[in-house]
Design a binder for these strands. Sequence first.
DNA 1: CGTGAGCTTGACTTGTTTCAACCAACGTGG
DNA 2: CCACGTTGGTTGAAACAAGTCAAGCTCACG
Lengths: 236, 236
Amino acid sequence: MAGIPPTCCACPAFQDNLCHIFTEATFANALQDTAVDDHFAPARRLIWRAGETLERVPVICQGWAATSATLSDGRRQILSFLLPGDLVSAALIFEPVSQSSVDAVTDLRYRAFPRAELKQALGRTPDLLAIVSRISADENARAERLAIDLGRRGAAARIASLILALAERLRRRGMMPDKTMDFPLRQHHIADAVGLTVVHVGNVLAEFRRAGLLEINERSLTLADQPGLSRIAAEL
Amino acid sequence: MAGIPPTCCACPAFQDNLCHIFTEATFANALQDTAVDDHFAPARRLIWRAGETLERVPVICQGWAATSATLSDGRRQILSFLLPGDLVSAALIFEPVSQSSVDAVTDLRYRAFPRAELKQALGRTPDLLAIVSRISADENARAERLAIDLGRRGAAARIASLILALAERLRRRGMMPDKTMDFPLRQHHIADAVGLTVVHVGNVLAEFRRAGLLEINERSLTLADQPGLSRIAAEL
DNA sequence: CGTGAGCTTGACTTGTTTCAACCAACGTGG
DNA sequence: CCACGTTGGTTGAAACAAGTCAAGCTCACG
């Protein structure tokens, strides 16, 4: 795993196996750069529908995406946001059929790896298996955490929690050096992620702003009072 | 995987790799019955707390259990119910520290397998790796489904959904031949599983009973009108 | 016989949704 | 250059779903 190949997300902490950082680099390494292919998608475009078959395993390179499920009546639940370096889903390494839809939040660049080669590499390289199992456990932990939030916490706690989690993930990959982060999410993204209405999300965010907890302008978010936000997220 | 060893859950359909059935048998096989040990726990007992370290990987043999997370203020979210044959968590094969608490719903028998041997077997046996990845994907799908239910569906739909899912899982392992199933859950289990209050769950169940959708008495539940329940679960 | 766990019911409160109107920013085509 | 539709955000009032509080009940268990 030594010798980082040129990669699209320039992260400092390659050794950090606690997050998904550098999956792309790792994969490219394991596959010795055979047969990868790049793709682009503009913001707001749906990339795959749930149930579609993907012959290749995609990894996000640039931009944000969201995985979601849509109910018959149009209500939507976002299950996770994908940041640069994220594997779209560990399950896709083993099963070609996508369980959820994926759409681009911002303009997006992603790279797709051939599944067969990946599975082989998995048998060859115990390190890679460890990483994939880690990623998989991580995905699961995130899904369970979401269920806990949606089941047992109020609107403010959910929203604060989401923002802090995103900040933390960005920090881990060196994309948030100070208190300000890129924040391409619209209110409807947040609403669909935390299981609330756009209107209500707007109200809570306005409340946060009034309380001096955060500032949002032009696609960037500043954590003006992180301890305060954390307190709300904990909802003691 | 041929040659089913004597096992505690006597399921008919061994080939069904869509569910967790026979994990115990599979594991015992892969490990050639070395160093398994059995445990018992009475109903209502907490078995592990979240964060505890488990040196062995547990599989449910008899009875029902629940994995849950508890918030600082005492609110609880049940993340999954464990039925006979279920691996408690695929993540435990790789990481010894449990992410959630587990408690016994009924009197419980479970069996614990040594992690090291299990991991070795995983390298040796590609079949076993396939099974484990399948189980892991399944767990994740269930967690995501829970998030969707909690985030975007009403009380009745969530409860109907839970009951139907349990019925389906029991059917798969041959534990529900007709319209009636063992149902050891208390209303507070259901409440914690679907993110509602005990009172509200009681009301909805009463409503279901009045509408002739189901009957519950003495720890058994009869699906009097499954199509009706499914309609409510779909919440068209 | 008493105690605690579990279920049911009713009145009231709270959090969230729904509906609606309005405004600002932006891109597109006439 | 302006007119226009689309997308996103804000605010307020009314409707609704679910939570809280409280009481009374059964049943199992010691």
